[in-house]
Design a protein around this nucleic acid. Structure first.
Lengths: 349, 349
DNA sequence: ATGAAAGCGCTAACAG
DNA sequence: CTGTTAGCGCTTTCAT
């Protein structure tokens, strides 16, 4: 039975001796169709194995019921969590999701944006690449009133709706925690300061130092990409520092884990010699030794929130422009890697 | 300029004083349109900001240019790799990807399959859930000649095209490696033996034992889900075993890492007391101590291969039915967690 | 090499 | 509450 003709509303209409319009309305549960006919329609549709043709509908309605997602990288715990959250909400809302990833490249990001624009997504969710320097490639969406929501890595120009955490605050509390542990000389390993997430965390770090009357030392700032190699390099640079730092705030748990390994291989004791705080609360944090203190923030929720806002906007439930910045909760999780003088607690286990 | 009317081929045709049909052909680079007109068409299209309406095209052609993907879980390093591979190939091929995840539930998997069927995907790629016991929900696809490719977690009934690794061989070499290290009493921590991947690995484990003249001890087999809690429980069960095993083959790196942590907390030395081999080559393997020996296999490639086969089939380049089983390479990576008596090498670093 | 015309399946005025 | 009708934008015979 491979090549059955598809069943259309006309076929249903014919069998029931009613008009296709009524079938269409019935299928949409339109209020102006009698219960009886509706039931007949649904039964017949099920019986005949009817499947809606979304293309005809979309063509007619000029809607795609599709949301585009642009991420900088798929192979990331954080992004995967966000994705899961988005997928949940969009599926519930009856939207399809087209995913594009830019591998941290501005060029690819722009190409993806263009592609999704041509595919006519109803809305877009995006997180920026490392080297994305402007938002020009999103302009076609803005011009056509297609809503765009950025999350995590965003440009805070006040013109776009963004879902973020308070990165400055996180940087502050992470650094403050290290200071409270008695650290006096705290290094910061991070990534491109062009991206808000990293520059804000850096700002929080600087503010915390300042509030503790410590003059920031630029040579303690290490910028790199987030690869394993770069992380090893960063750790080696730390080892060269004289005097050695007594604390490091790292912008990413994976990088922190690699650094810790490298430092330990060179005889550095953690946290006694150097205390470490990471960022993201990845699963590895609880598996390495000592367990990694980190900043926890809910990727899943961020995805759900971004998607929910977008869909509400599309459904006319709420207007996006009214809420420009959504800040999601975040918190410090203290584990052994940063506890200099106290008995290790068992948070987050 | 938010509400410009969309540019259609009619608009282009009017401006150029040619017929829409010619524009359509020109845009498709059809051979029966002169170079000159083609150029004019392309220029005008670009100039006017024309975007193809995929719905009209799909409606007309009765194709969706969309591929469905059903996975058991998104938050998995392996799945993410596969996804990245699939995304790459489908994007290159001009296909959209609709992703659905079943959270390891047969019910949800079936619902997702139905949904994608109604959305009329041109093809489907799927990996089965834990408790999926039959393939009935894929029957509508088969009946309509919609190609389905399974990967990793599959049902090898000989009727479907599958992309897999040789799990039995992997189980064999992992176990053999432990035996070669002098292990005599090897436990196996795995998951639902209903799924091919786990049952095959178990088979490999049994075969290796048999080939070394060791009688398998059922009490050394621990089946659980792959959660952190279950992994701790499994480790505790190992600790109860008398005598203690001297090796464990674990079906998943994360589970292995959690087990290792738990065992170490209870004073077990690894690899001296118990040698451990994991599976998947996750990033954590290189970050925990001792570094985890594991089986490496290429998720990315599996994704690319599955997607490529599907697309080739859809494009009529090759017929799927001719190649029923594609086995992807896999290998043992030896690290410190399994090296009982030799100096630790630095493989896989 | 180009044009005319029909139709993919659905929805939304409008009319009753 | 139901039917009639037109049209969304594209492709594709069939003609020329």
């Amino acid at each position: 039975m491979a090549n059955d003709k598809e069943v259309t509303i006309y076929d249903i209409a014919k069998r029931l001796n009613i008009s296709p319009a009524t079938v269409s309305r019935g299928l949409q549960d339109h209020s102006s169709v009698s219960k009886k006919t509706k039931k007949k329609i649904f039964d017949e549709a099920a019986q005949m194995g009817y499947r809606m043709n979304h293309f005809a509908r979309n063509l007619r309605q000029q809607k795609t019921k599709t949301i585009g997602l642009i991420v900088h990288e798929l192979k990331s715990n954080f992004i995967t969590s966000v994705l899961a959250g988005i997928e949940k909400v969009t599926t519930e809302g009856g939207y399809d999701l087209i995913i594009a990833h830019s591998s941290e490249s501005y060029i690819k990001e722009a190409a993806n944006a263009q592609n999704l624009f041509h595919k006519r997504v109803d809305g877009l969710i995006a997180s920026l690449s490392f080297d994305t320097i402007d938002l020009a490639h999103y302009k076609p969406f803005i011009d056509k009133d297609i809503p765009v929501i950025f999350f995590d890595r965003v440009e805070q120009d006040g013109n776009s709706t963004v879902v973020i955490i308070d990165n400055a605050k996180c940087g502050y509390i992470a650094t403050q925690h290290l200071l409270n542990q008695g650290c006096k000389r705290i290094a910061h390993i991070t990534s491109s300061l062009q991206r808000n997430v990293y520059s804000q965390r850096y700002k929080g770090y600087l503010d915390a130092l300042a509030d503790h009357g410590i003059v920031a030392d630029e040579s303690l700032l290490l910028v790199s990409d987030l690869s394993e190699e770069a992380s090893i390099t960063a750790a080696m640079q730390v080892l060269q520092m004289k005097p050695l730092p007594d604390g490091i705030f790292v912008t990413n748990d994976f990088v922190a884990a690699v650094c810790m390994r490298t430092l330990k291989e060179h005889g550095v004791r953690i946290p006694e010699d150097i205390a470490i705080v990471g960022f993201n609360n990845d699963a590895i944090g609880k598996l390495i030794e000592p367990a990694l203190s980190t900043i926890n923030y809910p990727g899943n929720d961020m995805g759900e929130i971004a998607a929910r806002y977008l869909i509400n906007h599309l459904n006319g439930v709420s207007r996006i422009t009214q809420t420009n910045t959504i800040v999601v909760r975040s918190e410090l999780i203290v584990r052994e890697s940063s506890l200099k003088n106290v008995q290790a607690p068992h948070y987050g286990k």
